[in-house]
Design a binder for these strands. Structure first.
Lengths: 225, 225
DNA sequence: CCATCAAGTAACCGTTTAGTTACCGGCTTG
DNA sequence: CAAGCCGGTAACTAAACGGTTACTTGATGG
């Protein structure tokens, strides 16, 4: 868009900075930009996020942002990738196969709900990315196999439950995961419009706990024989 | 932002329009702007939507947009209100109380799913509005009672089912509706990231039909005795 | 102890954006 | 039947935006 050629040499000498320079720390600056970007993109979406705002939140300036991440779009993709790595990593530590099939599924449902509850920025980022039809996520190569582990482990738990006669034969791993994620995602990401139109504060602890139980109840009721 | 004072009289005379003037039709222009705005806001969110793009899509210009709707924010709120009126109006025509309790709930689940499927712009608008924590919806007074009818009718159907002994006593109308909406909303609004990470095209008709059955199955399984 | 390179700053640039103004002309009505 | 209101056009503006450039400063290895 801006080729930058043809105006070199026009600049006048600028007033040099005489202020005290803060300690240098590339890693810290990089991390600060990433965290600030996560918040800015989560709060305002891709179209609404402001590069200046990210730099200011990170306590640095735009130059460093472009230095470390290329441009706004690449920074956004990095933020999104990190968000996915976060949930999938925590998920692996669960080891849902170590318990009985019923407890394993219940554990996954509880974990997912609580992770969503504690990471609202992850939900926002998903919403933003889907608004754009996964335009940036599709460009990410490193994420393809990150998710297969989940389905694999879930599939094993379901098979074991079927053999033990506690789960119905038609239970599908992807459907089970989508059910769990649906119930958590919708309640939290749409809490603002829902609370407004139904006149009930969904984020109130009592309602939150009721919905947590509800998710586990619905998930298990849908696959139990 | 722009007080408009202090530069009057500076303008030169402009070249008057000599082109043929199109037929005048205030209602059509207004409706065209509203429809164009619905698409633009749904595709790009509040931050990403461009006023120029809306005007162009509507086959008119910005002046008319500001003339009829005030500014970008008021236009957005109008779009959102119309979207809610659309689904709630269609919902009323269902009369879920006319059938058996089980059929009534199944009918509501099917309707909601199919409405979401046919109105992706409604889902996008909800996502956008929630990103901004219902900032604009909260300002809308006329929508408060639009939704109470739904819960009222659903509540009656559930009560009848409980008396007949087919539904569990703990079944809650809001929870039932949120369950139905969750399963439809998440699957469709997040279809792009989900299809990407799980390597399965969720919008394919076979998958769509399977999920439709799944929603009805899950909803009923969660409330049946 | 100095040459060099990465970290950092802030002004700057071209473009885009929401919103406005000057002007036009068909239709209605007193 | 004229006068003025209302639907409509396009050029305009100030500010904001993403991105770049000119330049400074600290650390470090030969």
């Amino acid at each position: 868009m801006n080729d930058g050629g043809g105006n070199s040499g026009k600049k006048q000498a600028r007033r040099p900075s005489t202020e005290r320079t803060a300690q240098r720390d590339p890693e810290r600056t990089r991390a600060a930009i990433l965290e600030a970007a996560t918040r800015e993109f989560a709060e305002n979406g891709m179209g609404g996020a402001r590069v200046d705002a990210i730099a200011e939140r990170a306590g640095t300036n735009k130059r460093m942002l472009y230095h470390y991440f290329g441009d706004k779009e690449q920074l956004y993709l990095k933020v999104l990738e990190e968000a996915y790595v976060g949930i999938r990593t925590a998920e692996r530590a669960l080891h849902i196969g170590d318990r009985s099939p019923e407890e394993g599924i219940g554990e996954l449902a509880l974990f997912t709900w609580r992770y969503f509850l504690q990471h609202p920025e992850f939900l926002s980022l998903l919403g933003t990315e889907n608004l754009h039809r996964a335009r940036w996520l599709r460009q990410s190569i490193r994420l393809k196999e990150l998710h297969s582990h989940l389905i694999g482990e879930l599939s094993q738990v379901l098979e074991r439950g079927k053999k033990q006669g506690v789960f119905i034969e038609t239970a599908d791993p992807l459907h089970v995961y989508l059910t769990i994620a649906s119930l958590g995602y919708f309640y939290l990401s749409n809490q603002y419009t829902l609370s407004t139109i139904f006149g009930r504060d969904l984020i109130e602890p009592a309602n939150l706990n009721a919905w947590e139980s509800h998710i586990v109840h619905v998930t298990l009721a849908s696959i139990k024989r």
